[in-house]
Structure formats: structure tokens, C-alpha cells
Design a protein around this nucleic acid. Structure first.
Lengths: 214, 214
DNA sequence: CGGGCCCGCTTGTGATCACAAAGCGGTATG
DNA sequence: CATACCGCTTTGTGATCACAAGCGGGCCCG
């Protein structure tokens, strides 16, 4: 048998799905941005069939919405919806952080600090897409230690739904200081302080809500 | 314009999706049950295309799994996965119940009691499918009052993933007494006792876990 | 009699086509 | 000048087909 498992199948619909998912989660597309099956097929050089499958999957995950007539677009979330999704983030991510805490050794904490430095750069440069990407990388790196794939998948689904909205929110962000709550998270991890960690994660996750009162 | 909005489109893939989803969520199919696109098409009298779309959507929601070669089957969950999903149920449903509490008026409580009576009947008759259906109806009726559609959708996604496994678990259930924690939930709702309600919901949701130690 | 190999059938994937409906523009009319 | 109508164009939906891969059962050999 070959040493390399090689790529068993670069399935077209999966490739399209992953690329579209990234673009949506990291805020490449603004809320309400329309998409078409034929357009996606043209962009990724596939026929309508894989485009339809990837879109269907993203719609199922809440990353895209379909109008009554079937038109596809990124979601425009109401304030109530945003509040709900933030509450879900708080519920799930606090649990994930709590489960990751006993397994968080020093190397992980240093990785988080490095990522947080990149978050700070993105904020300084007012680069919304880069900020969202590095911020989520920070959270995902921590939560991977929780060894809870189903919970992490749920959290990522929520991130995905908020992608376009986060772009819109952070796009009008004027802050230049790096995220304060990330430092609290790292400090709580170092101290093994579980209540402090829960509070810090909850604060970080619900922080963006204050921008809604603009 | 016409008075009735009429059904604008009885879309084939959506109809197939809904029926398959019901069968999975309510435990009609055992874990590991194989499905084929052509078989689904035959059963629901559609071509492969709508069958594929509905299956793709259900896979995205975790209601079905696909092997490396693309074969479709209901999921066989590991014990770790079940523990995770139960923890997610506890997190989300406790929050939903808490949000429903201030809006739970007497008519709702009476409806819950009626549903609970049906749950008792299903248990007495050892009808696993009917038990799952009425049990989830009990929870859904309560959570609908929370006015939190995104959270309810998350909870239903978890139910969906556990459907086949719940069938297998409850299928070897020997109890005949009606669910005790449902009565506690109703009592807490009557008393407006939020901590009691949270505890009762958490207990009810994680109760099934004890059957894993068989 | 048991085990390994091979062929055939079934399976999912992707492309293409016909079709109906919805959107969008221009045009004509008040 | 504003508005309603009408046609064309674009869009999603569903069906059908060709194809490659995988699974399974039967056959052959030891």
C-alpha cells in the first residue's frame, strides 16, 4: 500500500462548500449579498449541481437564506436574532472553555497569546475580515482542547450565521485597542480560575452586542 | 388578490426532507440504518435530485451520516457523543425553559399536563416511537413560549441527531411509570420557581444517560 | 471444506436540459 | 412627470444520463 493516503476524492461540492463557508464565516460577504447557482458554478468552475448541493448545505446551517422564490443571499439578522445567537455563543462557549481549562497547558496559552497578538494587529489596521478570522482562531484554538466536537460544531455554526453581520458591525468599529477580554481569558487560564474564565468568555462573546445600540 | 395565500409551492425536496426528518427524529429508524438516493426517490415518488437535496440537508444537520464512499445511513453515536449531546440539551433547554417561565400562563400549563398524560400512555404501552414523539412535543410546547426561534432550532437539531439512538435506548426500556421530572417541571412552572425549573429540566434531559451504564 | 479473488450490480457524483416563475427593464398612458 | 403594464431575461427546480468507485456474492483454487 502507498505511504501517503493521497487525497481520496477532491469532491467538487465539498470544495465549493468549504470555500463559500470560509468566505461567509470570516465576513467576506456583507449581509443581504445575493448569490446565484450559475454564478457560483462559474466562479468555482463547476456545474449547477455541486453549487446547489453546497448552497443547500449552507442554508441548512443558517449561513445562507432562501427567499420564498428560492433566491439565495447572506442573512440579514434582526436585533432579536443577534441577541439570541450571542446568548447561544455565551452558553456553549463558556461550557467549552470550562471543559478546556483542565487540559490547558503552557504551550496552549502561549499559542493563544501569539494569536491574540495577530488580533491586535488586525484591530490596529481596522481590517474587519482579518479581525474576525484571527478572533475566531483564538476561540477555536482554546475550544479544541475541550475534546467536545459536537459542541464545537454548534459554536462554529453560530459563528457562521453571524459572519456577514459581524463584518457589518466591525466594519464601523472605531476602536484601536486590542481586545481586553482576551487578556482576561489568558490570565484566568494561567491561574486555573474557572469562575473567572467563565466570566471572561461570557464578556468577550457578548461584548459586540453593545455596538447594536448605535 | 386572492384571500388565501394558497400553498405557493409544494416543493418536492422539502416534502421529502420533512418526512425523512420526522422519521429520524421520532425514532422510526434504528441507528446504522442504510438509505439510498434511488430508494428514497422510489419511496416518495421523486427523482434522485430532490432525494439528494433532502439527504444533503439532513447530513448537514447531523441527522444522517455519510461514509467515505458516500453511503448514507442513520448515525451510530459513541457514548462520548451521546454525553456531549445530552450536555448540549441541558445547556440550551434549561435556558429555553428559563426564558419561557415568565410567559407561562395557566393555559400552557394545562396543555403540558395533557401532553404529559399522553407521554404516560406511551410509556405504559412501551411504545418507543410514541414516547419519543409525545416527550418532544412536551418540551417543544414549553420552549415555544421562550420566543427564541434560533435556540429552539438548535435544540431540535440535537433531538434530530439523537433520534435513532433514543429509539434504541428506549426500546430496551423496562419502566412503566410516567416521567417523574415532567411533573417537577410543571410544578416549578406553577410556582414560578426558576431554580427549581432549571434543575427539573436538567434532570429530565440527562436522565436517559443513566441507561447507557447497562 | 475454507479462504481469497474477481466480476457484476448498485451506489453516489456531476453535467445537461426543459420548464415555470419571479424579477426587471422599457414603454405607453393617464 | 408618475405609474401601471407587458415582455424578456435570469433564476431555481426537477429529471435524466454517463461515469467511476465500492460492495457483495459467487466461483475457483488450495
Amino acid at each position: 500500500m502507498t505511504a501517503r493516503p493521497v487525497d481520496p476524492a477532491p469532491l467538487a461540492h465539498d470544495r465549493v462548500y468549504r470555500q463559500l463557508r470560509s468566505r461567509i464565516m470570516y465576513g467576506d460577504l456583507p449581509p443581504g449579498h445575493p448569490l446565484t447557482l450559475r454564478g457560483i458554478g462559474r466562479d468555482y468552475d463547476v456545474s449547477m449541481t455541486p453549487a446547489r448541493e453546497s448552497v443547500r448545505r449552507l442554508v441548512a446551517e443558517g449561513a445562507l437564506t432562501m427567499s420564498n422564490s428560492g433566491r439565495i443571499s447572506t442573512p440579514e439578522l434582526s436585533n432579536e436574532r443577534i441577541e439570541e445567537l450571542a446568548a447561544l455563543r455565551a452558553l456553549i462557549e463558556v461550557e467549552l472553555a470550562s471543559r478546556a481549562l483542565p487540559r490547558a497547558h503552557l504551550a496552549l496559552i502561549e499559542r493563544l497569546q501569539n494569536i491574540n497578538a495577530k488580533v491586535g494587529e488586525a484591530v490596529a489596521q481596522r481590517d474587519a475580515v482579518s479581525y474576525i478570522r484571527t478572533n475566531l482562531e483564538f476561540h477555536r484554538t482554546l475550544y479544541l482542547r475541550a475534546q467536545a466536537p459536537a459542541m464545537l460544531a454548534m459554536a462554529e455554526t453560530v459563528w457562521l450565521q453571524m459572519g456577514p453581520t459581524m463584518r457589518a458591525l466591525y466594519g464601523r468599529l472605531r476602536r484601536t485597542e486590542p481586545p481586553q477580554f482576551h487578556r482576561l481569558i489568558i490570565a484566568a487560564l494561567r491561574a486555573g480560575d474557572e469562575p473567572g474564565l467563565r466570566l471572561a468568555v461570557r464578556s468577550d462573546v457578548t461584548q459586540g452586542l453593545r455596538m447594536l445600540a448605535s
